[in-house]
């Protein structure tokens, strides 16, 4: 009974497809799920460190499609990177099918003053 009432309000499962073009990898990302979380669950060795949107290790270039950013990427990414379409996978929810480019060897972005 309790679960039936709750299930009425819970959105039905739906997913979008993300394509990492330079690695020829495709993965399903559930509605509301973060891109990085989905990638790691699918066994993709996506570079990451903090997983909370602070280090920039999981950045990738969005080539096609739409995402919803959960944080202001401007704290981590530079103006040029933002202009080029870089996003943080750990803070991105998919709004459509997407295509991204990822450097699997990239490192964390450092703030200048620390």
């Amino acid at each position: 009974m309790f679960e039936n009432v709750l299930n009425f309000f819970i959105k039905k499962d739906k997913h979008f497809v993300a394509n990492v073009v330079n690695a020829n990898k495709t993965l399903k990302v559930r509605r509301g799920e973060k891109l990085l979380t989905a990638a790691l669950e699918n066994g993709i060795k996506w570079p990451h460190y903090c997983r909370v949107g602070s280090c920039g290790t999981c950045r990738c270039k969005l080539l096609e499609g739409k995402i919803r950013p959960l944080t202001d990427f401007g704290y981590v990414l530079g103006a040029e990177q933002l202009k080029e379409g870089y996003i943080l996978a750990c803070q991105s929810i998919l709004k459509s099918e997407i295509k991204v480019e990822l450097n699997f060897k990239q490192k964390r972005i450092r703030r200048t003053k620390i």
Binding site: Y49, C50, V52, G53, S54, C55, T71, Y75, I114
Partner: peptide, 13 residues
Amino acid sequence: HVYNHHLELAHEN
């Protein structure tokens, strides 16, 4: 918490 603690914990930074 998010931009400092989660990157630098257990360190003097």
